[in-house]
């Protein structure tokens, strides 16, 4: 069978993309784990990060990997401010309100991008875009390999931040028991906004890593919304390891599904996994039992 020989290549390609998916999902799962909200604007914010990377390259000539240094902190502050003075203030503490407000934000961002940047697909032309690594059974585009390792590194850094620093400790405390955290003197609103900011910073990183091998248009984010939610639900809401493993599973499912079922029907696998997991194991693979 022809597709059997292509199978290893599809799996490796899926792993490469899965790392980026994991990074996107990591932001979502962090926000869910701490704030217990579903950030529906996640895809739209990734789209904004992609545009930021794109314009830094096309207007200022900054390489996407260098602009990590600008886009990641920028995304963090944007996310922090957005939560502290926007979402948090307007939601009055009700979960469904947050869902709707982030939906409203997604609509505003997506159409704001359409208004400012037009609907055209934008790509960047970096000199190393077509260089590739030969693994013997598969050629891998260099940008994908870089994004794979960079994503893993960022996941590790985030884990260290959460496990080893005081800030991480405060975030984990708020995630576990927000009233108790308030009582011991943690500024809960600040920690909420911090977590949201870190979640959006993950998107900033994903934007920089993604752009050299991808494209951006105002609706790019929609592609990632369902995928990111699927990964988060699959791995278990709030679980870091889950987001990582889920990212790889979804990346492989997508590329193998595309191989066997074709480009169009292949996407159905992700939505089906999403529905089945929600129905039969809503805590996901690594989520704790409620």
């Amino acid at each position: 069978m022809l597709s059997m020989t292509m199978m290893p290549a599809a799996i490796v390609n899926g792993l490469m993309f899965g790392a980026i998916y994991a990074l996107v999902a990591l932001g979502l799962t962090l926000i869910y784990g701490v704030l217990h909200i579903i950030n529906f604007a996640h895809g739209a914010l990734l789209m904004l990060a992609l545009y930021a990377t794109f314009y830094l390259f096309s207007l200022a000539g900054i390489d996407p990997y260098v602009s990590l240094l600008i886009v990641v902190p920028g995304s963090f502050f944007f996310g922090y401010a957005l939560y502290r003075w926007g979402i948090g203030k307007l939601a009055h503490g009700r979960d469904q309100n947050i869902l709707l407000i982030t939906l409203g934000l997604a609509i505003v961002f997506e159409n704001g991008a359409l208004f400012l940047f037009s609907a055209d697909q934008q790509t960047i032309d970096v000199p190393y875009a077509y260089e590739s690594l030969d693994l013997g059974f598969v050629f891998l585009a260099l940008p994908k390999v870089i994004s794979f390792f960079a994503s893993l590194t960022i996941c590790l850094l985030l884990w260290l931040l959460m496990a080893k620093t005081d800030m991480g400790k405060a975030i984990r405390a708020v995630a576990k028991e927000r009233q108790g955290a308030r009582l011991v003197g943690i500024n809960v609103e600040h920690v909420f906004a911090l977590s949201y900011g870190i979640g959006i910073a993950c998107l900033g990183a994903a934007g920089c890593l993604l752009l050299p091998s991808f494209y951006v248009d105002p609706s790019t984010g929609n592609i990632f919304v369902i995928i990111a939610f699927t990964i988060v639900v699959l791995g278990g809401m709030g679980s870091f390891v889950g987001a990582l493993v889920g990212g790889f599973i979804i990346g492989i499912t997508e590329s193998v599904g595309g191989l066997y079922l074709g480009e169009s029907l292949g996407q159905i696998g992700i939505s089906l996994i999403f529905i089945l997991i929600l129905l039969f194991r809503p805590t996901g693979l690594f989520g704790s039992k409620v």
Binding site: L90, A91, H92, L100, I101, G104, A106, I107, V108, N111
Partner: peptide
């Protein structure tokens, strides 16, 4: 989108 956010808020 802005109307939606304002209404919720």
């Amino acid at each position: 989108g802005l109307i939606l956010i304002a209404i919720i808020g």
